[in-house]
Design a protein around this nucleic acid. Structure first.
Lengths: 257, 257
DNA sequence: GAGTGGTCTAGACCACCAC
DNA sequence: TGGTGGTCTAGACCACTCA
């Protein structure tokens, strides 16, 4: 967590050794308090949090200190400031951050319009590898969703999604079909689970029979394999995805900084 | 440029329309001044810039304002603060930011050790597509470098690199062979060209005869195609790379935020 | 101990938004 | 017009590095 342009980040220290707690600045403590309150659901996605002044009074610190804590949460894409209006809990529902994690792009590096089809949604005991990636016990309950994304009516992405059964009690194909918009919006709204960050491991593979069939392509054609682990607060993994991307019409865009 | 957790970023405005200049805060102006001085080579990579106090005096603003400008440059990976020592121009030479743009990882998501072999370095007139990506005129001079990266003696990456001939006058295979460490270090040191950010477009392809031969793999096996455009100050493109990555032992890592 | 960046404060004023 | 975040200031003190 907490990848911000602020000092004291242990991962950014010149000496690689993990030193002790050193010194915890006030604004970091406020950051922690706010994070915990967000995590507890005290403020829901889309809602306005108290003003900087109010928080400063509440925590008995100066406005500048609260501001710095909020800066970090904004850098984490957890909060969003709107000048003249207030500071709001970020949401995957909002147009500008819809499909924030989707890296597939067209020739102009834009997210192309697409539609989603749910192939199935079932509950099962977590296979070994899925359990490991989700940091749960093997054979614990998980929900598996398979879906296809069509870009201009061309099936392009085949996703298998695994979610911890305990968090996603009640998730069903009907619910998924009824919902439109990003999955992460549904997860926020119905399961109080916000995807905050993730990692994708990308490799090149050959289409197997089943995938080639679903994506209407030749056997042995190349595909991008995209394995995503998404995390919520405190880096807790709450989603595993295995995507197969056709990249004859699109590409995976990665920004280098 | 300028992707920072700070306000007034037009790209972050709720209304997508490009409004006028609005209001240019002082710290942005300082950011601009510092950027121009860095671009002009007034301070070279690795060198310390003047202290915040000194800059504040020089520009007739408060220390806090200079600090905020520097914060932005730090967020851009252009400067690096070291508490108790000073603020330094970031460099690709430093261990922590060596191979900053390389996304290939091993099973533990670490950058694996590797060695580089230059296959050739030649000058030619830019083909149409290369010229377009580098924003130069077709048939202008470019340098093309081909090299292989070996991971544990296994050829894994085949890179073709195109550089504008005007900037990279004097680049030769001998110079490349003599140099060890990141290419971007050489580019900084010998050609005053700092790679600040970039984009990679990743697709899955099948190995052709030549590539399969160089990477010691079967024809028709899947490969990652990684097309990188790197930019220096003001988003000026100064490098085009086409990489072919074997991903049977490694993967391409992408962080989602 | 001198010099650097890092934190924290208190307060003034500005730009923006909604009513 | 009132309230929000955004900017800017001046100054005190702390943590860290190095000689």
């Amino acid at each position: 967590m907490s990848s911000s342009p602020y000092g004291n980040d242990p991962a950014d220290a010149d000496s690689a050794s993990a030193c002790g707690p050193r010194f915890d600045p006030l604004y970091r403590q406020i950051y922690g308090l706010l994070t915990r309150q967000l995590q507890s659901g005290q403020w829901v996605p889309g809602q306005m949090i108290p003003t900087e002044q109010a928080l400063a009074r509440q925590y008995q610190v100066s406005a500048g200190t609260v501001r710095k804590a909020i800066d970090m949460l904004v850098a984490d894409n957890i909060l969003k400031r709107r000048q003249g209006r207030g500071t709001f809990v970020q949401t995957h529902r909002e147009p500008r951050s819809q499909f924030r994690f989707l890296r597939l792009r067209d020739d102009q590096d834009k997210v192309p319009p697409f539609t989603s089809r749910i192939l199935f949604c079932k509950r099962l005991r977590a296979p070994q590898d899925v359990a490991r990636m989700l940091a749960i016990k093997p054979a614990e309950a998980v929900v598996q969703v398979r879906r296809v994304l069509d870009f201009e009516a061309i099936p392009t992405v085949l996703d298998d999604i695994w979610l911890p059964g305990s968090r996603f009690r009640g998730l069903s194909a009907e619910m998924l079909d009824a919902h439109d918009g990003p999955l992460y919006d549904l997860f926020e709204t119905e399961f109080a689970t916000r995807m905050l960050q993730g990692k994708e491991r990308v490799t090149a593979i050959l289409a197997d029979t089943q995938t080639a069939d679903i994506l209407a392509m030749g056997l042995g054609q190349p595909l991008l394999s995209v394995e995503r682990v998404s995390e919520t607060y405190e880096g807790e993994p709450v989603e595993l995805r295995r995507g197969r991307y056709r990249t004859d019409r699109h590409h995976y865009l990665s920004e280098l900084r």
